[in-house]
Amino acid sequence: MHEYGIAEAILSAIEHRAAGRPVRRARVRAGALLRVTEPAINQAFTLVAEGSPAEGAHVDLVIVPAQLTCRSCGSTTTSPDPYVTCPSCGGTDIDVDGGDDLILESIQMAEATHVPGDPRRDRGNPA
């Protein structure tokens, strides 16, 4: 399954951004050419994230469509499935642009269980 390589790339980006802090969720934009689904990427991510700050985190996947240009009629369209025929003429001679991106859009940190400071648990400097 190629999802494991993609999950490892996502984990690497999360670990870099989180800097050791525990992560609850991540939002990732993946191009249509990567041919991944949210359930498959989460299954792979669960395995690769074990023992990391992202252990137990969920990946929200947003599929970015590829731009298709028909060489026969010049029609341009976008599609989440890059292996389609031209919707205008039915041709199969199609150029595909984009759709291979993998971008970590955001991460959601887990809530802190301990706030450093004095034992009275105040969060500011006493005046």
Rank of each mutant, 00 (worst) to 15 (best):
S12Q: 14
V48H: 03
N42V: 09
V48S: 03
R71P: 07
L33W: 09
G98L: 10
A54V: 15
A110W: 01
P53Q: 02
L34A: 08
T85A: 13
T76P: 00
Q67G: 02
R121C: 15
R17F: 13
M1W: 01
G90Q: 05
G51R: 12
S75M: 09
G90H: 05
A127R: 14
D60T: 11
A30V: 06
V23A: 12
G20V: 01
S79Q: 02
T113S: 10
V115G: 06
T37C: 03
A30S: 08
T78N: 06
D100H: 12
D97V: 15
V115R: 13
G99I: 01
S72F: 03
I14M: 02
E15I: 04
P126A: 05
I103T: 05
R35D: 06
I103G: 00
A110H: 10
V62F: 02
R121N: 15
F45L: 12
D100A: 11
G5T: 08
P126R: 07
R25G: 02
R21F: 10
R120E: 13
I41F: 05
P126I: 01
A66H: 06
D95M: 00
N125Q: 15
T92N: 14
P80C: 03
I63N: 04
T69L: 08
S12H: 14
P119Y: 03
L102H: 09
V28K: 12
R17T: 15
E3A: 04
V28N: 10
A26E: 09
G98E: 07
M1K: 00
D118H: 06
H58M: 02
L102F: 11
L34C: 11
G99M: 04
I94M: 04
Y4R: 02
D118C: 11
T77G: 01
A19L: 09
V48K: 01
C70P: 08
A110D: 13
E8V: 00
E38Y: 13
R25H: 12
S106D: 07
A32V: 04
A18P: 09
S106N: 05
A13F: 01
I10A: 06
E38K: 13
A110K: 15
S75G: 11
A112H: 12
R17I: 14
T76Q: 14
A112R: 14
V28G: 09
L61A: 10
M109D: 06
V23H: 12
V23C: 12
L68H: 07
S88I: 04
Q67D: 09
A112N: 09
V62D: 03
A7M: 03
G51C: 10
S88T: 12
R35M: 11
T77W: 15
D93F: 04
D81T: 04
E55R: 05
G31E: 02
D122H: 14
G124I: 00
D97L: 14
C73Y: 08
R35P: 01
L104P: 11
M109T: 08
A30P: 07
Y4C: 00
I94G: 06
R121P: 13
D81I: 09
F45H: 13
Y83R: 05
R123E: 12
I63K: 08
D118K: 03
E55W: 02
I63T: 13
N125K: 14
V62R: 04
S72Y: 07
Q108M: 07
R123K: 10
G20P: 04
L47N: 13
D95N: 01
V28H: 12
P116S: 05
D81M: 05
P22A: 12
S72A: 11
N125I: 15
